[in-house]
Write a protein that binds this DNA or RNA. Structure first.
Lengths: 351, 351
DNA sequence: CAGGCTTATGTAATCGATTACATATGATCG
DNA sequence: CGATCATATGTAATCGATTACATAAGCCTG
């Protein structure tokens, strides 16, 4: 039970140890590891054997100090507890860590002083790149961050005219498709549960909603646009508002700017006696895992979250490793409508 | 529109720059920042002013190289997309990043070769500590990791007799409380939907279930223990199994080892015509946000996730900074039963 | 007022890797 | 065969901070 194998912790082998064991200079060891082709086969074998025997791994701090890199990228995410972002993060992590990068996750849902610390970190050159999972860079410190001249890639929220590459889905098109689906089912009174006004994402989804109505010749009714902010809570509030309407004016369908709100809304109207989809069809946006678990399962636009993260990470790596910052290309990934149980044709009802 | 402020990216200030500006030596600058008390007030002011003017931040790689630290901790998490862990991670991140540590998240849900890379990273001394959010350290590489003699702290899953501090809730007690609640409501036929057999967590929750039944004088029926693995899918399967039973032998209540399974099960039995809680009371475990969103809201044991993460991180910091590794104390955090809508007394029914 | 002590600061070694440059060896060629 | 060149390897400077040790200045005390 007591301390077994007392053997004092041996410090990790350094390059000099490997060199000594292999009978070569440190330069040769370093070269063997970095560009195996330039050393003779014989030497290479001896060095690699020595590396194995000492279980040598280069000291990252020393290397980074020398080559002036940090091998760290900062990922700014609006809310790490949000499952939507969690999966994007996985895609990012897969790609980035495979390439040897570590990631510092800046959770913008946390206290604002942390946010400032993250920006400082980047400005101080402690990160080789930044991945933004939101439109506003870092609220007030946008300019500081941009001026740090650190490679930047955006994902999720498309900012028209931004000066850095962005990996997104076609939000306008996807929203339009969602609403078209409702129209095709026969709905003509379709509400929209919006995201936070400040986001570009919101404006784009709203635009898609408007386009779909317009092309179908349905007049947009201002009263059918309900305020939300992507949270479950505002979904609940919108649900209550819907219940308060008299059946004659109540829309027969609703498009929510994200799944979480859609789920909150469905739960609320259910409790109030409305049946989904019979009395109200609902389409969400994002395709979070839970959209498939809830009751009824949610018809929604599913975003390729993992790929979104992976592509963004790949783009950032290209930007960080290539000196030509001309890489700069936006990528649009496909999102598709998943038909599930929360939508159906409107029930005919007496005026 | 074109490149504004072309000014070539100026490299970050280094300590020598600050020293020159303040008219002191680099040693004095370093000391001013590390131990302000040892320099004279006059010097201190000059140095701090110079630091501000140059917006100097110490180069982390250089510092780490010198003091032989990495300021990185590895966090091994079974599944980053699982909202339960997401919130624990937040607690960890808050505490750790406030103390200046970066965290590398080892997502065990990812490909196994990544896992090996993480263990290697620790063994190579590239992390100052490890936080384990799971019982098995890293599957096969347990011993390697332990032999690296890196400070270790466990959370969530309590391993009796482990050689490192652990921050947990009382799983046996909490499970017992959950089942006691069902018993108090009048249930006598109570099923248990288990977690993966291999985990200690599972054995502890099962033990709590058994204890509650025993103290109430209810015989444990093997057939009422249903296999699960913490996923939504196995919750669905268990739901189907329940539906297949004839009403006479069907339990009137069920305790699920986690919320996700409970939610899958409820959804399934609902679709099959059973009403929850009327025909089947369900208690979950964890208290994930969704347990409050689903229909009906889930009565469950809510774990103090953020605090769990924060305490574990604090403990690890103590371990990493104190040379005396005698800190070593386990912490048990309180979990409490949240009474919601998925439980009620059993409906009396004809034999 | 010499010697000892405290306080404030500077000098230079050090952490562990990378890499420009120098050197040594052997091959090639006119 | 001596000059030229390619190939393989070694030497030592360097990245930017920390800190042990040295030094200088001021203060006390017998």
């Amino acid at each position: 039970m007591a301390k077994r194998t007392k053997e004092t912790r041996r410090p990790p082998a350094k390059i000099a140890d490997v060199a000594r064991l292999a009978g070569v200079s440190v330069a040769t060891v370093s070269r063997t590891l970095a560009r195996p082709a330039v050393v003779s086969e014989d030497t290479r074998n001896r060095v690699l054997a020595a590396v194995r025997d000492t279980s040598y791994t280069p000291n990252i701090s020393a290397r980074n100090l020398r080559v002036r890199k940090t091998m760290v990228v900062l990922v700014a995410v609006p809310d790490i507890a949000n499952p939507f972002f969690a999966e994007i993060l996985q895609g990012i992590d897969d790609t980035l860590s495979a390439a040897g990068y570590g990631l510092v996750i800046a959770n913008l849902a946390g206290p604002p002083e942390k946010e400032a610390r993250y920006v400082d970190l980047v400005c101080a050159g402690q990160a080789d790149g930044v991945l933004l999972l939101c439109g506003h860079v870092m609220r007030s410190r946008d300019r500081d961050l941009r001026d740090a001249h650190v490679p930047l890639v955006g994902a999720c929220e498309y900012i028209p005219g931004a000066s850095f590459p962005q990996i997104c889905i076609d939000n306008v098109g996807a929203a339009r498709e969602a609403v078209r689906h409702l129209i095709k089912l026969g709905h003509t009174s379709i509400a929209y549960l919006s995201g936070p006004q400040s986001t570009i994402l919101e404006r784009q989804r709203l635009e898609g909603y408007r386009q779909a109505l317009k092309e179908a010749g349905i007049a947009a009714v201002d009263g059918l646009i309900m305020p939300g902010d992507f949270t479950f809570r505002t979904g609940v509030e919108a649900g209550r508002a819907l219940l308060a309407l008299s059946p004659e004016v109540r829309p027969t369908a609703l498009f929510a700017a994200n799944d979480e709100m859609a789920i909150g809304l469905i739960k609320t109207v259910h409790a109030g006696g409305l049946r989904v989809p019979r009395d109200l069809s609902v389409v969400g946006f994002d395709g979070i895992p839970y959209a498939d678990y809830c009751e009824p399962t949610l018809t929604t636009i599913v975003q390729p979250r993992r790929e979104l993260g992976a592509s963004a990470a790949a783009e950032l790596i290209a930007l960080m490793t290539t000196e030509k910052s001309a890489v700069r290309k936006d990528i649009e990934l496909p999102a598709k409508l998943a038909l599930r149980d929360s939508t159906c044709p409107p029930s005919t009802r007496s005026t």
